[in-house]
């Protein structure tokens, strides 16, 4: 089965040449439509995708402008107001320690939960997206190359095996030892750590994507349409771009969704091991990890970051579903 570009071509052709009378459509001819408009139409029909996109937009927007609306410093300690509960606890427990100065409560050192959630979201979203994109880029690149070019298959897949078997913790420690000082000097303590974390998470998580993409490419490149494309002399990179990549889109989308969650969680594991951001720099993963010990007394402290991570991941997942459907010409227009 061929993919979208050819279909479009045929459609467009059909619109220009005057058809034989008997085959003429009864109704008025629809004006030619651009492919991306079709994609958007299809995407809009997908309720889940719209909701996912809305959530992502909402969360991204929230963490970006949040600090200007809620100006409390997430690192400021307010020891007299420690261990406050969220304001809604007052609904069923009139004795709970609540107050509008900390609407979502405060932690064991009196840091405000709301501003931590906003600041933590900035860090987690940035790390999650950057690391996920990096890992997708490497993984897809390696996978496609290995699957399509027989010569590269052996070396690239052995490289994948090597990366799969590297123990992550020593790798991290080596990276921190070698690169922290220069990165800190050039980008500051937080910026340097951000680059380091994104790189480490990225280069330790691309391997499954690479193997999955390679497996699919191996199967697809033997299909008739690729053979056809090759027989008319299409360049290998054109074939990859127009025929292979669109067909391996769905496993890539799944990898992306799972990768975002993994990156956010891995970041928290890193700061847990002391190789992540400075300890007073909040992220969703770290808030969750810190709050586990107190989850019976202060369930909101695990729920807030937990729900935030889940919603983000769900949002990306539905968005990915919608995009995949919208980009698939076999589904589009039905």
């Amino acid at each position: 089965m061929t993919d979208s570009p050819q279909d479009d071509l045929i459609l467009a052709e059909g619109a220009r040449v005057a058809p034989i009378e008997a085959l003429k459509d009864k109704g008025p001819m629809a004006p030619p439509r651009s492919k991306w408009r079709d994609v958007w139409e299809q995407f809009r029909k997908h309720k889940g995708a719209m909701m996912g996109a809305f959530f992502l937009f909402f969360i991204t927007f929230g963490v970006l402008i949040g600090p200007y609306l809620w100006t409390l410093d997430p690192q400021a300690l307010d020891i007299r107001n420690k261990d406050m509960r969220p304001i809604y606890t007052a609904l069923w427990n009139s004795e709970a320690k609540v107050g509008w100065n900390h609407p979502l409560g405060s932690d064991q050192l009196g840091r405000d939960n709301l501003s931590q959630l906003i600041a933590g979201g900035r860090a987690s979203m940035a790390v999650g997206w950057a690391a996920m994109l990096l890992s997708l880029l490497i993984g897809t690149g390696v996978g496609v190359m290995a699957g399509y070019f027989k010569k590269l298959d052996g070396p690239l897949m052995r490289l994948t095996d090597l990366f799969l078997s590297l123990p992550i913790l020593p790798l991290l420690l080596v990276a921190v030892t070698l690169f922290r000082q220069p990165l800190r000097a050039n980008f500051g303590p937080e910026g340097g750590m951000f680059i380091l974390i994104v790189t480490v998470v990225g280069i330790t998580s691309w391997m499954p994507t690479a193997r999955i993409v390679r497996g699919d490419v191996l199967a697809i490149k033997e299909r008739e349409f690729v053979l056809a494309a090759r027989s008319i002399g299409t360049q290998p990179f054109k074939i990859i771009k127009r025929h292979l990549l669109p067909n391996v889109l769905s496993p890539i989308m799944v990898s992306a969704t799972l990768g975002l969650a993994t990156a956010i969680i891995t970041e928290s594991a890193l700061s847990f091991l002391g190789v992540g951001f400075p300890s007073d720099f909040p992220t969703w993963g770290k808030m969750l990890a810190d709050a586990v010990a107190r989850m019976e007394d202060f369930p909101e402290r695990v729920l807030l970051p937990g729900v935030a991570i889940s919603l983000t991941v769900l949002g990306v997942n539905y968005l990915g579903d919608g995009l995949r459907d919208a980009l698939d010409p076999r589904i589009r227009g039905r």
Binding site: G274, S279, D290
Partner: peptide
């Protein structure tokens, strides 16, 4: 966990007397 809480508190007090503090924690 306790050391990181201490670091946060002490950083706060030092900031109050005009001392800038950068925190770092290292795997034990």
């Amino acid at each position: 966990a306790v050391r990181q809480d201490f670091q946060a508190l002490i950083k706060d007090w030092w900031n109050q007397i005009g001392v800038e503090t950068e925190l770092r924690n290292v795997d034990s």
